[in-house]
Structure formats: structure tokens, C-alpha cells
């Protein structure tokens, strides 16, 4: 193994890992506030893909410049995904808030399948080509090859994560989110509209997921109804690995998972890439079930 290959895989891992991290944040935020694994989150990310494809194509056909088209498409995807996320919470999870915890979990799996099928109805089964709005031509920096697309993904992810941390720790709404996550009843006594805070949490998580969906579509040049499944599972793994419910955990977990997968590729064939995520998940669950950063909490599920 040469050091060049290792460096290259580390860079690839960071790019993929930052996307995992963005998606993992959606899982972890919802878990933090509702102790619910929102298995439909991967599908929300998926919706961001085809939505942005349609939006960019339409905007380009209107003669808009490509960067503006991309930015507007991202906004459209964020709004669509946020609306879907909030609607899911309102329709599927809220009525079950006081039900045994298995009920919303199974509902989440059901919602996930439902969204996939709806995506087939709305978008079709085709693979959609995502226009090359940011160059996917390789650039060589030293021994490492990257694309402008990947650099943008990395930088945008870091910026988004920093913005989320700032929001959660330095704003009134963020403090209310943390208060609600800790004790909904007392949060209500403070005058916090708990339902509203939960809806906002879903909206933010889904919005970040939408961006991740656009990043994936833009990086691989395609979007399809199935793209959320594996991505969702891996991001969920990342969230568990970092310590679900913990924002830093989701970010660190996402990056580590991306690195493990891509560095692991040096040793095994590409077909086996997906194994790493789940080996890591099993190992974490056996040896450190609270995650790398998470605190040990009494198991409730």
C-alpha cells in the first residue's frame, strides 16, 4: 500500500463522510427530542435528489445561470423535504407520541416504504441525470485527485454543521430545542410550544437531509427513488456509532464511517464496501452501545 493511495482514500472518505454526517444529524436530532429512530429520514434525503434534478433542469431551461439554478434547486429541495418531514411527524408520529415505543418505530419503517413507493409514483423508476453544475473534472492537488464538486461538498458540510451547532447552542430556539429534548413537560411549563419545537426539529433535520440528497445527486451525477435506502442506513449507523442523540456524535460518526469505508477499500474489493458500515455498527453495539461520544442512558426501546 502506498501512502498516495491512503491519502486519496482519506480525502474520498472525508467527502463521503461529511454527507453521512449531514444525514446522521437528522437521525440524531429527532432521536434526541423524541427518542424515535426516524427510519423515513433516508427517504426524505432521497426526495431531495430527484426534486433538485427537476428544479435545476427547469431553471436551466428558463435560461438561468447554472450556479443560481443550483442554489434555487437546493432551496426548493430543502423546502419540499422540510414540508414532508414536518408532515410525517404531524400525521404519523405525533398521534403515537404516548404509545409504546415499538409502535412509532414500526410506523417509521412503514413511512419509509410509503415514501419510496410515492417517489416511484411521482418521479418514476428512472435514474435521473443531475446536470454538471459544479465541475466533476478531476483536479490534482499534490498526490490527491479531487473534483470541485467534492471540495464544495466538504466545505458546505462543514459550514452547515457549524451553523447547526451555533443555532442549537446560541439561539433561543436552539436552547428551547435542548430544553424540550431534556424534559417536554417542564419545557411546556416555560411556555415553550413543544409541538412547534418538534416540528422545527423535523424541518431542520429534513432540510439538512435535502442538501445531502442534492450533494449525492450532484456528486454521482444521478438521482433515483432508491438512493435514500443505503445512505439512510449508513447515516443511521454513523449516528449510532457517534452516540445517537448527540450532535457532535453524528458529525464525528459520519466522518469516521466515511473514512473506515474508503480506507477499507484499499484492502478489499469495491463490492464489499458496504460491509464496513455494518461491521462497525455491530462492533459499536457490542462494545460501546452508547456510542463514541454519547452518554450512557437507561435503555428505553
Amino acid at each position: 500500500m502506498s501512502i498516495d493511495v491512503l491519502l486519496q482514500q482519506i480525502v474520498n472518505g472525508l467527502v463521503v463522510g461529511s454527507v453521512y454526517a449531514l444525514v446522521a444529524l437528522g437521525y440524531t436530532m429527532v432521536y434526541g427530542i423524541l427518542q424515535l429512530i426516524n427510519f423515513a429520514h433516508g427517504e426524505i434525503v432521497m426526495i431531495g435528489g430527484p426534486t433538485s434534478v427537476f428544479a435545476t433542469k427547469w431553471l436551466l431551461s428558463m435560461g438561468r445561470p447554472s450556479l443560481l439554478a443550483l442554489l434555487i434547486a437546493i432551496l426548493v429541495a430543502m423546502v419540499v423535504c422540510a414540508v414532508v418531514g414536518v408532515a410525517i411527524e404531524r400525521v404519523a408520529y405525533r398521534p403515537l407520541r404516548n404509545a409504546p415505543r415499538l409502535a412509532p418505530l414500526i410506523t417509521a419503517i412503514g413511512v419509509s416504504i410509503l415514501l419510496q413507493q410515492l417517489a416511484i409514483l411521482v418521479f418514476g423508476r428512472n435514474y435521473f441525470t443531475f446536470p454538471e453544475l459544479i465541475s466533476r473534472d478531476p483536479i490534482t492537488i499534490g498526490v490527491v485527485t479531487v473534483t470541485m464538486n467534492e471540495i464544495v461538498i466538504l466545505l458546505a458540510s462543514v459550514a452547515l454543521m457549524a451553523a447547526l451547532l451555533w443555532l442549537v447552542h446560541n439561539t433561543k430556539i436552539g436552547t428551547a430545542m435542548r430544553a424540550t429534548a431534556e424534559n417536554q413537560k417542564v419545557a411546556g411549563l416555560m411556555g415553550i410550544d413543544v409541538n412547534k419545537i418538534i416540528a422545527i426539529t423535523f424541518a431542520i433535520g429534513s432540510g439538512l437531509g435535502a442538501i445531502a440528497g442534492v450533494m449525492v445527486a450532484s456528486n454521482y451525477g444521478q438521482a433515483h427513488y432508491y438512493m435514500g435506502f443505503m445512505l439512510g442506513l449508513k447515516a443511521f449507523t454513523a449516528a449510532v456509532m457517534g452516540g445517537i442523540g448527540n450532535l457532535w456524535g453524528a458529525m464525528v460518526g459520519g466522518l469516521i464511517l466515511g473514512l473506515v469505508e474508503n480506507v477499507g477499500l484499499i484492502f478489499v474489493r469495491g463490492d464489499y464496501k458496504d460491509i464496513f458500515a455494518f461491521v462497525v455498527l455491530v462492533l459499536v453495539l457490542i462494545f460501546r452501545p452508547q456510542g463514541l461520544i454519547g452518554e450512557r442512558v437507561a435503555e428505553r426501546a
Partner: peptide, 22 residues
């Protein structure tokens, strides 16, 4: 509330600010 119900993972200042949430 009974049992005080402070937000354990918020600092003292943030707890006070939550009192003024509305």
C-alpha cells in the same frame, strides 16, 4: 414543578432564560 425540573444539561443562565421564553 415538583422535583424542581431544572434542565440538567443547560447551564444556569440558559435555564433562567428559558423561564422568560414567552
Amino acid at each position: 414543578p415538583e422535583g424542581r425540573g431544572v434542565f440538567a444539561r443547560l447551564n444556569v443562565h440558559e435555564n433562567l432564560l428559558m423561564g422568560a421564553y414567552s
